[in-house]
Design a binder for these strands. Structure first.
Length: 415
DNA sequence: ATTGCTGAAAGG
């Protein structure tokens, strides 16, 4: 059983409180809720769903988080073997008839795109911002998911916890049991349907889901906060919490700017009606006619939406996005705050450069579509390797700034 | 006749 969080407006009727059902045997949940002391306090148990509210605050220490890292070890996966071996492998056609796996065949020939190789239907916005930091590192993370060193994990957990606390300032979280991906998307859509009117009436929402096809790939993300300023402009705020009370380096800022630029790119497309249900269905392979689960249906009804299928819900979302007088995002703001003290370390107002963003996205997607090899960082940014888990095995480093699969054997430094 | 398949971000 999985669960998804419905972001319930404080005015939402008939909220039920309930037990948390997360029981992935052997798996690790990365949900911030599970780590965050604020939530364990807030858990009350009655029937079937759970509401978390901001009232039970008072988090600060995160000693459980290291413990959770241990569970991560189960997450292993096959190590890549075929990558360095171009050309047909042992599974040639004809041998014992017809049992050739097309997938393996293509993989052996190195024909498939990274999207196919990693079995990805879509990418997260943060995949692309990580790619902006170091493409090669991002590839290794997909290829050989590794475990964060505990200290790094603790910083992430603290950040997640602070974000959760802020989210709970503007709505409750109701955990909804789901069984299918259609249900998961339905909850996402219900969140959108309830957030749009909230933004228009109250002027502020947090954790707004965005999605849209960009350069042929579906991108999915969540906007930290959207609000209207005193002047009536729509402002996006991305909060970045930091372990140390210092401003980020330029490379970090660049990555964060790119992240929020992507959000605007996608959000604007959504409210302009450029994100179609057909495109979404095409990429996600969702089945709009598949019946929704009972808990999702109940929540839809509670929200006043008379829908029977995911397709209905998608239509509503499309209409709500395009007919609610939502403007495009006027201002992109990043706030850096110190984790421990909440001191504001700095604020960036990002100038949205559409052409530049498009160019970068095209370049990044070219990798995902299999049109080019991944690249690591330039020499000047080799300092990034210092904190990279994959530095020891990195083919980019071995090649001295060129992917070693691109090097001619003889061409290697004749000294 | 059968469906494999993802909460995104968390920070450097």
């Amino acid at each position: 059983m999985q669960t998804w969080s419905f972001r319930a407006p404080f005015s939402f009727p008939n909220l039920v409180i309930s037990a948390f059902c997360l029981s992935l045997p052997g798996g690790r949940s990365t949900k911030s809720q599970d780590l965050c002391p604020i939530q364990s306090c807030a858990m009350a148990e009655t029937e079937e769903e759970e509401v978390v509210s901001a009232e039970a605050s008072g988090f600060s220490d995160l000693s459980d988080s290291e413990f959770l890292e241990v569970l991560d070890l189960e997450d292993t996966q096959e190590s890549n073997a075929s990558l360095s071996k171009p050309g047909p492998s042992s599974e040639l056609p004809g041998k014992d008839g017809k049992l050739i796996s097309l997938e393996k065949w293509k993989r052996g020939l190195d024909v498939s795109s990274p999207m196919e190789r990693f079995h990805l239907k879509y990418l997260y916005v943060t995949d692309l911002s990580t790619q902006n930091w170091c493409e090669q590192q991002m590839v290794y993370e997909k290829e050989l998911p590794d475990f964060l060193v505990p200290e790094k994990a603790a910083v992430l957990d603290t950040g997640a916890c602070i974000h959760l606390a802020r989210e709970l300032e503007v709505h409750d979280l109701v955990t909804i049991p789901i069984t299918t991906k259609e249900d998961a998307w339905a909850v996402k859509f219900l969140n959108i349907l309830s957030m749009i009117p909230t933004l228009q009436s109250e002027g502020r929402i947090r954790e707004f889901p965005v999605f849209g096809e960009v350069e042929g790939v579906l991108l999915v993300g969540v906007i930290d906060e959207l609000h209207y300023t005193a002047k009536g402009e729509l402002e996006l705020v991305e909060l970045k919490t930091r372990r140390r009370p210092v401003l980020p380096l330029e490379a970090q800022k660049k990555k964060d700017c790119f992240q929020v630029s992507l959000y605007k790119h996608i959000f604007d497309a959504m409210v302009q009606g450029k994100v179609t249900t057909d495109s979404l269905i095409h990429h996600t392979k969702l089945r709009p006619e598949k019946p929704l689960g009972p808990s999702v249906l109940r929540h839809a009804q509670q929200g006043g939406f008379s829908v029977k299928s995911l397709g209905d819900l998608m239509e509503l979302v499309f209409l709500s996005l395009t007919l609610s007088d939502l403007p495009v995002i006027d201002i992109l703001k990043i706030e850096y705050i110190h984790q421990e003290t909440s001191t504001v370390l700095g604020t960036e107002i990002v100038a949205f450069e559409e052409k530049e963003v498009r160019g970068k996205v095209q370049h990044y997607m070219a990798y995902w579509m299999g049109h080019r090899e991944p690249q690591g960082v330039d020499m000047e940014e080799a300092w990034k390797c210092r904190t990279c888990n994959y530095a020891d095995i990195c083919e980019w480093r071995k090649g001295g700034g060129v992917h070693s699969s691109m090097l001619e054997p003889q061409a290697k430094k004749a000294k």
